[in-house]
Computed example of a mutant assay.
Amino acid sequence: FHVLVAGLGNASVTPDSLGPRVLKNLQVTRHLKVQYGDDFWKGRTMPIISGIVPGVMAQTGMESAEILKGIIKETEPDLIIAIDALAARSVKRLGTTIQLTNTGIHPGSGVGNHRHSLTLESLGVPVMAIGVPTVVGAAAIVHDTVSAMIGALSESMETKGMGDFVGKLNSDEQYDLIRELLEPEFGPMYVTPPDIDETVKELSFTISEGIHLAFLGQEVS
C-alpha cells in the first residue's frame, strides 16, 4: 500500500508552512524499496510512504495539482494525504482544530486564491485532506462579535431597526454582509496569532506522528 503525503503551502511564510513542516517530520519509506528491491518488502507489513512539498505557484510557476499528476503517473500511489493551512471562519478555531476530510481539498480557496482542486476526480487517486486554521479574515473577526453589535444597535431607538435586520440574517448571510462592508474599505485582510511559530511547530509534529501511528503503527520521534 503506497501513501503519497503532499505538504502544501509556502515554507517561507509561517502561517502557510504547516504542510512543508509536516514533511520535515515525516518518516518516508519508499526509498527502501527502491534501494533494496522488492525482496526487501516481502513479508513486511510496512506501507510505502513517500512525500513531496510542491511549493506554491509563485515559486514554481506550476499548480500543485499539475506537479502531483506527474508524480502520481510515475509512482502510482494508492492514497494521497494533502496537508494544508486553512483560513478560519471563527477566531476560536485558530490553531485549535485539526480538520480531516476524504473528499479532497481546494488549495487557496479560504483566502480567495483559488487553485486547481486535489480530489479523486481531478487526480484519479483517493485524497484525504488534513487542515489546520492558521489565519482568520477580518470579516470573521467582526462576525464573531456580531451578537454584541446587534445588542448595541437594539438598545438605541435610532438603530433598533438595523439591529433587528441583522439579527434576522443567518450566520452565512451575516458573514457575507460584513465582508461586503469591510473589503472595499480594508481589502481582504487576514490575521494570524502572535504565537503562530510555536503553534505550527507543535501541530505539524502532531500530524506527522498521527500519520506514523496510522500507517507504521508507531511514533517516530
Rank of each mutant, 00 (worst) to 15 (best):
T75P: 08
F205R: 10
T145D: 09
A11D: 14
T96V: 03
L181F: 13
K201C: 13
E183M: 14
G210H: 02
W41R: 00
D164I: 15
L86V: 03
T14Q: 09
Q59G: 12
S208M: 02
I49Q: 05
S50Y: 00
T192G: 07
I207S: 14
F205S: 08
E66I: 05
L18I: 07
A148W: 11
K69L: 11
G131K: 02
D195M: 05
S109P: 03
L26W: 03
L18D: 12
N113V: 11
P193G: 04
T159A: 11
P15A: 04
Q174Y: 02
G161C: 04
E219A: 12
T192Y: 09
G210L: 05
M62T: 13
S64M: 07
I98T: 03
D78A: 06
E155C: 11
V3R: 00
T145G: 15
D38F: 01
N170D: 15
I80L: 14
I83P: 02
V220I: 08
S50F: 01
V220M: 03
D164S: 09
V135H: 05
L169K: 15
I83W: 00
Y175V: 00
F215D: 00
E158H: 14
F1Y: 06
I150N: 02
G110C: 04
I98D: 07
K201S: 15
R115E: 10
A140K: 08
V200Y: 12
V34P: 00
S90G: 06
G110E: 08
S147V: 09
V135K: 07
G43N: 00
S117N: 09
E180F: 05
G37C: 01
E173M: 09
A140H: 07
S204G: 08
V132Y: 00
V127Q: 01
M157P: 14
F186I: 14
S147G: 15
V13M: 06
K42N: 01
I48F: 08
P184C: 09
A214P: 01
K33R: 13
L23K: 15
G51E: 02
L26C: 00
E173W: 06
V56S: 12
H116F: 09
I52N: 07
S109W: 10
Y175K: 10
I178K: 13
K201P: 05
I141F: 04
V22L: 03
G163I: 05
T97V: 13
G187I: 04
V28F: 04
T119R: 08
M162C: 13
A85R: 03
R179N: 15
T199P: 02
K160F: 06
V53N: 12
V166T: 07
G112Q: 10
L203P: 04
D84A: 03
L169M: 14
D144L: 04
F40C: 00
P126F: 00
V220A: 04
T96S: 11
L4Y: 01
S50T: 06
G9A: 14
E74N: 09
I196A: 05
D78E: 08
S50R: 06
M162L: 15
G131H: 03
R44A: 02
P188T: 13
G161D: 15
I150P: 02
G161P: 12
I67E: 10
K201M: 11
I48H: 11
S208W: 03
G70I: 03
D39V: 00
Q99P: 00
A82H: 08
H106M: 15
S64Y: 08
A87I: 09
P54M: 10
A148V: 13
E185P: 09
E183D: 12
L203G: 01
